[in-house]
Amino acid sequence: MRVSKTWPRMVPVTYSSRPAICPARAWNAWKEAAGLADKPNSPAFRRLHLRWHTVMQGGLELESVGDVITLTGERTGIEIRFTGHSPRRGLATSSRVKGHVRIVVAKQGGWAPHSKVLARYLEIVDQWEDNALTGVL
C-alpha cells in the first residue's frame, strides 16, 4: 500500500481476519468509490474549495490531516486528544504488544531504526512487559 503525508513509500499491509476493521479492504473500497483505482499517484484525500465545496486538484495540506484526526476524536466524545501522530503511535504500541521487535515496527511505521520518538512510544509498552520487578515481588 502506498502511504505517507509527505513522501510516498510502499508498505505491506495484510488483510485483517476481521473484515469490518480491515485497512486493506477499506483502502481498496475507497479507491474504487473515489475513482482512484486507475490513478495510483493521486492523493487519497482531496482538498475542497472553502466556499463552493467542490473537489480541487491537490491533496490535503499536511496540517489538515492532523486537524481531521483531532476533530474526529473530539466529535466522538473521547476525552483523549487525538493528533496526526495517534495512528502511528497506535501502530507502534499495538505491534509491540503483539510481540513484534523494534526493527520491524520501525520499518512498517516509517521510523528510522534507532528513532528516539519510537523508543518513547515503545517504552510505555515495554515498562510492563520487560519490568525488572516481574517475578521478584
Rank of each mutant, 00 (worst) to 15 (best):
M1R: 08
R2Y: 15
R2E: 14
R2S: 14
R2Q: 12
R2M: 10
V3W: 03
S4A: 12
K5S: 13
W7Q: 10
P8Q: 13
P8R: 04
R9D: 12
R9L: 10
M10L: 06
V11E: 09
V11D: 06
T14N: 13
S16K: 05
S16Q: 08
S17Y: 06
S17N: 15
S17M: 11
I21W: 10
I21Q: 05
I21K: 02
I21T: 15
C22E: 06
C22I: 11
P23L: 01
R25T: 13
R25A: 14
R25S: 15
W27V: 09
N28S: 07
N28M: 09
A29W: 12
A29M: 11
W30N: 05
A34S: 10
L36N: 04
K39P: 04
K39Y: 11
K39F: 12
N41T: 13
P43E: 13
A44V: 15
F45T: 10
R46L: 10
R46Y: 11
R47M: 12
R47H: 07
L50T: 10
W52M: 08
T54C: 02
V55D: 06
V55A: 11
M56R: 11
M56C: 09
Q57T: 15
E63R: 05
E63G: 03
E63C: 03
V65A: 02
G66D: 04
G66N: 03
V68A: 07
I69H: 01
L71S: 04
T72M: 05
T72H: 03
E74V: 10
R75E: 15
T76N: 02
G77S: 11
I78L: 06
E79D: 14
E79V: 11
E79A: 09
F82A: 08
F82K: 03
T83W: 06
G84R: 05
S86T: 15
S86D: 03
P87N: 07
P87E: 01
P87V: 08
R89E: 02
A92V: 09
A92E: 07
T93C: 03
T93L: 04
T93N: 04
T93G: 03
S94G: 14
S94P: 05
S95C: 05
V97M: 09
V97K: 09
V97W: 13
G99C: 08
G99V: 03
H100Q: 14
I103R: 07
I103M: 09
I103D: 07
V105E: 01
V105Y: 00
A106Q: 00
A106P: 01
K107H: 14
G109Q: 03
G109H: 00
G109T: 02
G109E: 02
W111H: 00
A112W: 00
P113Y: 00
S115N: 02
K116W: 00
V117A: 04
A119D: 00
Y121V: 00
L122V: 06
E123I: 00
I124Q: 12
V125A: 00
W128L: 10
E129M: 12
E129A: 11
D130P: 00
N131L: 01
A132W: 14
A132H: 10
L133T: 07
L133S: 05
G135Q: 04
V136I: 12
L137V: 13
